[in-house]
């Protein structure tokens, strides 16, 4: 069974993560997913790929804490968080949040809060690789 919180270079399967989440409880009546994807155009530039750097040990612990905080803050049954690092070509998956709850409202709210909080609390940095060169990305909401 895949761990519910992971940082990995390889792509993830949304279907596999949803299946893993659903296997934890038959009380789950709603599953909400957020999948962040690498765009091929940003701030007027064509993007070939993104490259993510992490503070490895701290990033994983921050994501594990984020999972616990999400479980405590919302009336949900489970949440899984997967983030990729290293080079990610445009069009590929970056991050996945999967939330399961009895009813949809809590799952939508928890999923939105979880990705917003990830951006502010997990030590990861994104670099854009363009035909003209590469540059670090300033954070944006």
């Amino acid at each position: 069974m895949l761990e519910p919180v992971r940082i990995q270079t390889e792509d993830f399967s949304v279907e596999e993560e949803v299946r893993a989440l659903k296997s934890t409880s038959k009380r789950i009546g709603a599953v909400v997913t957020f999948c962040g994807v690498a765009r091929d155009f940003s701030r007027g530039h064509r993007i070939e790929s993104l490259e993510f750097e992490q503070y490895q040990s701290m990033a994983l612990r921050a994501m594990e804490k984020l999972r616990q905080d999400t479980l405590e803050r919302f009336d949900i049954i489970d949440v899984r968080i997967v983030h990729r690092v290293a080079r990610i070509p445009a069009g590929d998956n970056i991050v996945l949040i999967v939330v399961g709850s009895e009813h949809r409202k809590e799952a939508f709210e928890a999923c939105s809060w979880c990705i917003d909080t990830l951006k502010n609390t997990v030590p990861l940095w994104k670099k854009e690789i363009t035909p003209e060169g590469e540059s670090w990305v300033e954070p944006h909401p």
Partner: peptide, 8 residues
């Protein structure tokens, strides 16, 4: 010493 995070 870290710049603002930009994951996700």
């Amino acid at each position: 010493v870290m710049p603002p995070f930009s994951g996700g």
